[in-house]
């Protein structure tokens, strides 16, 4: 299925899509976007890459194992909820930094949670995709 046009196009599309996905993730709290959408866009980027270059290439591109990504994401989401416990609030109370960081914007535990969601979504879709494509 790999054609020259597709493989060349994905080579340039890939970084753009990944950048877009991170952008969607970070702006999600204030504008349409968020961890689910961001993760799906990133997964779509890898899916395109898989079709163009094959599973092995795509896996190398991802660097980490997709299943590890699921675990990391779940851990991140869970951990983001526990910060509030140290502050004496109930589990998963959102905590925010007072100052804005450059480019990322305001940082708080919900952003961390959303990043966890992002990782899980990428991990899940790619685990499924790779398993089906290799089969």
């Amino acid at each position: 299925m790999s054609t020259l046009i597709l493989s060349t196009a994905t080579r340039y599309l890939m970084p753009l899509l990944l950048l877009l996905s991170v952008h969607l993730l970070l702006r999600g709290h204030n504008e349409p976007g968020g961890g689910f959408v961001g993760g799906l866009v990133a997964s779509a980027a890898f899916a395109l890459y898989t079709i163009a270059h094959g599973v092995d290439q795509a896996k190398r591109m991802l660097r980490v194992d997709s299943k590890t990504l699921i675990g990391m994401g779940l851990f991140l989401a869970l951990a983001s909820g526990t910060f509030s416990l140290f502050a004496g609030d109930p589990f998963m109370t959102g905590l925010w930094m007072k100052e804005k960081l450059p480019t990322i914007g305001k940082v708080g535990t919900p952003v961390l949670f959303d990043a966890g969601v992002y990782c899980v979504v990428v991990g899940v879709t790619l685990t499924i995709l790779f398993a089906l494509a290799e089969d």
Binding site: I128, L132, D135
Partner: peptide, 20 residues
């Protein structure tokens, strides 16, 4: 719905794998 869409995808993938 947002989560339902994503979970629906997961279920669809699982059903597909199961049927295969």
């Amino acid at each position: 719905i947002l989560t339902a869409i994503v979970i629906g995808f997961g279920i669809q993938a699982f059903a597909t794998a199961l049927i295969r």
